Computed example of a mutant assay.
Amino acid sequence: MKITCNFDSGNIDVIKAEHPADIQLAIRKDHNSDFYQWFHFRLHSQSPEPHTIRIVNVKDSAYPDGWKGYQAVASYDRETWFRVETQLVNDELVITHYPEAESVYFAYFAPYSYERHMDLLHSAQSSGMAQIVELGETLDGRDMSMLVVGEPADGKKKIWITARQHPGESMAEWFVEGLLDRLLDEDDAVSRTLLDKAVFYIVPNMNPDGSVRGHLRTNAAGVNLNREWQTPSMEKSPEVYLVRQQMLEIGVDMLLDVHGDENLPYNFVAGSEGVPSYNAKMQQLETAFKNALLLVTPEFQTEFGYELDEPGKANLTIASTWVAEQFKCLSYTLEMPFKDNANLPDLDYGWSDVRSMKLGQDSLVAVLAVVDQLR
């Protein structure tokens, strides 16, 4: 029996793995950080017995309440990720696996690899409708890449989509893949209309280093990028610095910053009601976007989400609030669950990569509902 994580986004430490009934593991912390929650490892075993995997350090993880009601995902082919029997027992996460083959992968959520990220960029470029813009390099020397979709012209709106500032929130890049699939479909009336009215500036992965390293929340320096937007630096947070510079040069009429939430089993948005310049126009745009998304998909809801910020009390180090204040525009954080959508549960797959992509596709209808009102 062997357990490994020496691959893209791998994360686990083996404490004990001598018998299938007693496998003990621990999740590694993000580099230079106390954050941890993401795991991704491979189990190879020829034993036909049930395997009991105990992750022993979840009590002190970044979001300990996130383990309640959570089911891990597994895959035999690294394409289809299904939920496996998982329980929280005595502050340990216990995964029970009945092997159907010798080798199986387990993860916190369906991984989105760096190879797939590069495929996504170049597939978009090959459509003839998108341009890859290299913004600079990360601390580990990886490319910070942006896709520009549409032809810039006077009067066109500038719509930004950023994803995966927190690298363990891989559903965010699945969302972007779905959005791009629809946006680049020349036969789709929603996309054709949007590209007549707007240019999309899309950063599918804001944190390539953290993604490859198997981090939950930080970059190679152990920095939480979604707390860097007021004063980023090339020394600590080049990812934010480089994207922010582009925003300042190009302008922003709308931002959708895509994330995943460990605790809440719902899809929801967090707005900018707490920024100092919040006004009736921004409120009207937020309401219009939410109402449109409610109409287009039952995967979205507005009953559950984060507590609203008090007027003038927003944290302006966060991307969506910094953008709202800087550009006086519609700016949302969109959150998806690690668990399942409690309003529309799927016992086999939970909230998944496929459902994330479909929500990305559906989100374009909500963008179309507000595009003419953005300025």
Rank of each mutant, 00 (worst) to 15 (best):
residue 315 N to S: 09
residue 294 L to I: 09
residue 217 R to L: 11
residue 289 F to G: 09
residue 254 M to N: 04
residue 240 V to D: 01
residue 286 E to V: 09
residue 309 D to A: 12
residue 302 T to H: 04
residue 278 Y to Q: 06
residue 258 V to D: 00
residue 217 R to P: 09
residue 252 V to A: 00
residue 308 L to D: 14
residue 194 L to G: 02
residue 180 L to Y: 04
residue 295 L to D: 15
residue 224 N to P: 07
residue 308 L to K: 15
residue 214 G to L: 03
residue 215 H to G: 03
residue 224 N to R: 08
residue 274 G to F: 06
residue 231 T to S: 15
residue 259 H to M: 05
residue 190 V to H: 04
residue 220 A to C: 01
residue 197 K to N: 05
residue 191 S to K: 03
residue 312 G to E: 06
residue 317 T to I: 06
residue 293 L to T: 07
residue 312 G to P: 07
residue 243 V to I: 14
residue 224 N to S: 06
residue 190 V to C: 05
residue 260 G to N: 11
residue 215 H to D: 08
residue 307 E to V: 15
residue 201 Y to L: 00
residue 175 F to S: 01
residue 217 R to G: 06
residue 233 S to T: 15
residue 186 E to G: 07
residue 262 E to G: 15
residue 243 V to S: 07
residue 203 V to R: 01
residue 262 E to V: 11
residue 296 V to D: 12
residue 274 G to C: 10
residue 279 N to H: 10
residue 190 V to P: 04
residue 177 E to P: 05
residue 272 S to Y: 09
residue 220 A to P: 00
residue 184 L to Y: 03
residue 198 A to N: 05
residue 279 N to D: 13
residue 208 P to A: 03
residue 237 S to I: 09
residue 302 T to S: 08
residue 212 V to H: 06
residue 305 G to V: 12
residue 203 V to S: 03
residue 236 K to G: 15
residue 201 Y to M: 00
residue 198 A to I: 07
residue 215 H to V: 06
residue 230 Q to R: 12
residue 276 P to A: 05
residue 315 N to W: 05
residue 178 G to T: 07
residue 190 V to T: 06
residue 290 K to H: 14
residue 234 M to C: 11
residue 317 T to S: 14
residue 208 P to W: 01
residue 197 K to F: 00
residue 268 F to Q: 05
residue 227 R to G: 12
residue 294 L to H: 09
residue 194 L to D: 01
